[in-house]
Every structure is written in structure tokens, then in C-alpha cells.
């Protein structure tokens, strides 16, 4: 036996087939995206159908803000908000027990609903609206979220997406990131749909209470005026539809005779409490 005089020239492609990894990437990423979008759609579709069947009493009571109202004035505002919400709720509504929480220390104009029938209203929101109608629109919108069981829908969707993330990798891996981003975009798409549904229902509630929906766009007009970015905000990552789109929808819902109806002002005492001229 002897050593060979030289190494043999082996054919290429035994240990590495020199495939283009880009093709591999496109096929796998495409399949993963399609799978996540399809599963997200199924989760969203299922959640909106399961949520109404979940008894309202099962919703965990989730609320924020001060448990006791600090001043007599805050107490009065909280009662006013509670009463206005009560007035907006139809007599035959399935869910009529709503707790409105007044958040006097938060300057951002906002209101939000949480599970268990809780609505939160910030000081900034009262500063943003000019009339009772404008305020009622926001309260009706938040009530619509509760009535349409959106907190439960959201919970079910989040459980579903957490399960997908667990299966595909909940870490910082690239596949996990793709899945989470796609899942998040899907969640936001469903969130925007929920906002549109709540707007639509709120207009119905306003019409039932006031006979018109004038003033419903007050908060959104305020947002457009005060937030320069609001006019351009639209995208897959937004939880709410574009402000301009919402204004256009509310305008389209107004009836012809609405233009002659005067808005109901906020009570004088509330205007004074907000340091505004009545």
C-alpha cells in the first residue's frame, strides 16, 4: 500500500448543493405568513362568534384609576358621566350595569372600556369636547365595545396568538419575529374593525337618545387640530382607523335635517369646573 500522489478531484455539490437560499427563504417565509394570516383570521372569526356566548358575569372586573373620588367636584363629574352613560343605554339592553370611572389627573384626551363593564374617562377628554353630544358619542362608543363584547373578543384573540407564538418560537428568533409581527398586524386589523363597529353602534345610540348624531365628530376634530401626525396616521400597525376616515363616516351618518338641530351644551357647572366660559 502507498499514499496517493495527489488528492482526487471530487465532484462539486456533494456536501453543498449550491442552492439559492433566497428561493428557500421566499417559499418558507411565504408559507409561514400565509399560515399565520389564515390562523389569525380563524382566531378572529372564532373569537367574534364565541365572545357573545360567554356570560357577561364571567368577564373579570378590570378597572383603573382612583378607587375613591378625591373631591366633591370630582364626585359630581363622575356621577354626571355615569348618568349620561345610563341615559344612552337602551332600556332593553342586555348589559345595562356599567361603571364609569373618572380619571381627573390624566391630561390626554382618552376614554376606554375594560372587561367587566367599566368605562374610563380622562380629564383631557372633557377638555376636548365642546358639547354634551360630543361627550355622549365617546361614552356610547365605549359602551358599544362592552355591548359587542369586544374585551372578551380581544382576550380570546390574544390567547390564540400566544399559542401560535409558543408553537413557532416565542424567542427572538427570526421566525418568531415574523410570526409575532404578522400576528400583531392581524390583531390590529381586527381592532380597527371593532372600532368601526363601535362607531356605528354609537351613532345608533345617539340617534335613539338625541334624535340625531350631530356633534359626534367633536373629539376627532379636536384630535386632528391638536395632533399634527393624526392626519397622516394610517397603517397596518394602528389599533384605530384613521381619524379622517372616522370623521367621514360620522358625517355620512348624519341625516339631512341634523344641520338645523342645535347641540346640547355641557352643564354650566361642568364648564366652570373645567375652567371654561359656559
Amino acid at each position: 500500500m502507498s499514499f496517493p500522489k495527489e488528492n482526487p478531484q471530487l465532484p462539486e455539490g456533494i456536501n453543498n448543493q449550491h442552492d439559492n437560499p433566497f428561493v428557500d427563504f421566499v417559499i418558507m417565509a411565504g408559507a409561514l405568513l400565509l399560515a399565520v394570516v389564515a390562523i389569525s383570521f380563524l382566531i378572529g372569526w372564532g373569537a367574534t362568534r364565541i365572545a357573545p356566548a360567554v356570560p357577561f358575569e364571567w368577564e373579570p372586573n378590570l378597572s383603573f384609576g382612583p378607587s375613591d373620588v378625591s373631591s366633591e367636584q370630582d364626585q359630581r363629574i363622575a356621577e354626571y358621566l355615569q348618568q349620561l352613560t345610563r341615559d344612552l343605554i337602551p332600556h332593553d339592553a342586555d348589559i345595562s350595569e356599567i361603571n364609569v370611572h373618572w380619571l381627573p389627573d390624566i391630561e390626554a384626551a382618552n376614554a376606554f372600556a375594560t372587561s367587566g363593564g367599566n368605562i374610563h374617562v380622562t380629564r383631557g377628554l372633557l377638555d376636548a369636547v365642546k358639547s354634551e353630544n360630543g361627550l355622549a358619542m365617546v361614552l356610547a362608543h365605549e359602551y358599544a365595545h362592552i355591548e359587542l363584547r369586544h374585551p372578551v373578543v380581544l382576550m380570546l384573540e390574544q390567547i390564540g396568538h400566544t399559542l401560535i407564538a409558543l408553537v413557532t418560537g416565542f424567542d427572538n428568533s427570526s421566525a418568531g419575529a415574523i410570526t409575532q409581527q404578522t400576528g400583531f398586524i392581524s390583531l390590529m386589523a381586527f381592532s380597527r374593525d371593532m372600532e368601526r363597529a363601535a362607531d356605528e353602534r354609537a351613532v345608533t345610540l345617539l340617534n335613539a337618545y338625541y334624535g340625531h348624531s350631530r356633534g359626534s365628530e367633536e373629539l376627532f376634530e379636536h384630535i386632528l387640530q391638536t395632533d399634527k401626525d393624526a392626519a397622516h396616521q394610517w397603517g397596518l400597525w394602528q389599533s384605530h382607523p384613521a381619524t379622517q376616515e372616522r370623521i367621514e363616516f360620522l358625517e355620512s351618518q348624519k341625516k339631512g335635517e341634523d344641520t338645523h338641530v342645535s347641540l346640547r351644551p355641557l352643564p354650566d357647572w361642568l364648564e366652570k369646573a373645567l375652567n371654561r366660559e359656559p
Binding site: N16, H18, D24, F25, M28, S173
Partner: peptide, 28 residues
């Protein structure tokens, strides 16, 4: 970075990790 993304996707679907095969072939 591209190879790590492809390999990470392969972790889900299974199969030959071509992106790393070329790396190890070169290294050897």
C-alpha cells in the same frame, strides 16, 4: 443574518438547512 433567518424558518418546517451546509462546506 440572512442565513440565520433561513435556518430559523427551517426549524419550523424541518428539512435540510442548505444555508448552513454551504457555510460548513466552505469552513471544512
Amino acid at each position: 443574518y440572512f442565513k440565520t433567518v433561513v435556518a430559523s424558518l427551517r426549524n419550523i418546517f424541518g428539512g435540510r438547512v442548505g444555508a448552513y451546509e454551504s457555510l460548513l462546506d466552505r469552513a471544512r
